[in-house]
Design a protein around this nucleic acid. Structure first.
Lengths: 200, 200
DNA sequence: TTTCATACTGTGTATTTATACAGTATTAAT
DNA sequence: ATTAATACTGTATAAATACACAGTATGAAA
């Protein structure tokens, strides 16, 4: 898919925002107003560019006839994470789900598909999607996504300071993970906001 | 809140459907077309009635300027169910959540807040919201919402025929529940489609 | 009985809106 | 060096749209 220019990206974001806030797509005039364009035709041309690149669909002859191509919408689901790759790298995104609403306490940056049973005792089981916010300011008690030497893991944060980090699996068959962040490569990738599970 | 007439209700439903399918509210003409009105003014008058009754907001001078009042949108969350009352009775609905998207395999009629630990071993814990579809055609293996003599419970359906129903808790501290539907008052309220959990 | 809400048709029109065409200037690609 | 895409202004207009006013008919409420 073709890349967007900065301006095009801003406009796509604006359209998406208007749809979620106002419940309908903006008119050319409203776009022009927002960006200070003196001619609605500027908006028209940006829309054509976005349409041509496949990011939106324009419905000719229809007022507010703009729909956003769904494959760019929605929250990515991160499946298996290739060692050392950024979590949100395209190769890790297995699909996207349309998802809006105020279900979780903060905005969801991505969903991570759970592997293994290390969190079974708090009701997080294999295959579950956990909602992640990319914040780094986590505190003990939070369930976190952490990266230890290129491996990504989900655990409860038990202790965190400059010398020592303790991650706790919620399953008595597993032992606590103790890390020295000054020696090992350690990073907090985000905080778990909640769980989504879909039975078939 | 004032009651809607059958026609008004149909129109409200149509508006809601158009918004979710087309991504924008319909015009008066589109409403008239759908219902076979020969004049767009019929749609106009229904919209005014819906606005007056508080179900929608009309944005004057704006094409497709219809927004649905959010307190009627969203999926109800059923909290504690008063014995013998219908699940979706107003007094059982603790709130509603805005929720759209194709997250679950079927449409969600309501969310039920889980009480107790009888389903712990399949990752359904106290406080979880489980997504329910009101179907009655459930099969063994499904997690179901059942009503036994005015009590509502969530269990795995293990066996179902005219003489005997077995509901299985997913926790070894609990025993199977065996019901004779010809003697006891038994009803399937719905099927569990998935789980939603929100950490704070 | 009279008023009011509902549920329409039919006509008309001011505004809103999409969208084409003609320009100008800047930057990226060939 | 030349072309094409980007990013705008400015003007114009056909079509889409909201919405008012004038009717007709029915049933429910006061």
């Amino acid at each position: 898919m073709k890349n967007l220019t900065r301006r095009q990206s801003e406009i796509l974001t604006f359209i998406s925002d208007v749809i979620s806030n106002e419940g309908m797509p903006p008119t050319r005039k409203e776009i022009a107003l927002k960006f200070g364009f003196k001619s609605a035709n500027s908006a028209e041309e940006h829309l054509k560019a976005l349409d041509k690149k496949g990011y939106i669909d324009l419905h000719g002859g229809t007022s507010r006839g703009i729909s956003i191509n769904k494959s760019f919408l929605g929250i990515p689901i991160v499946g298996s994470v290739a060692a050392g790759s950024p979590l949100l790298a395209v190769e890790n995104v297995e699909e996207r789900i349309e998802f809006n609403g105020n279900i979780f306490s903060d905005s969801v940056d991505y969903f991570l598909r759970v592997k293994g049973d290390s969190m079974n005792e708090v009701g997080i089981v294999e295959g579950d999607l956990i909602a992640i916010n990319k914040r780094k300011d986590v505190k003990p008690g939070d369930i976190v996504v952490a990266r230890i030497n290129d491996d990504v893991t989900v655990k409860t944060l038990f202790h965190l300071d400059k010398r020592k980090v303790i991650l706790r699996p919620e399953n008595k068959n597993y032992k606590d993970i103790e890390i020295n962040p000054s020696i090992e490569n350690f990073d907090i990738e985000g905080k778990c906001l909640g769980v989504l599970r879909n039975y078939n």
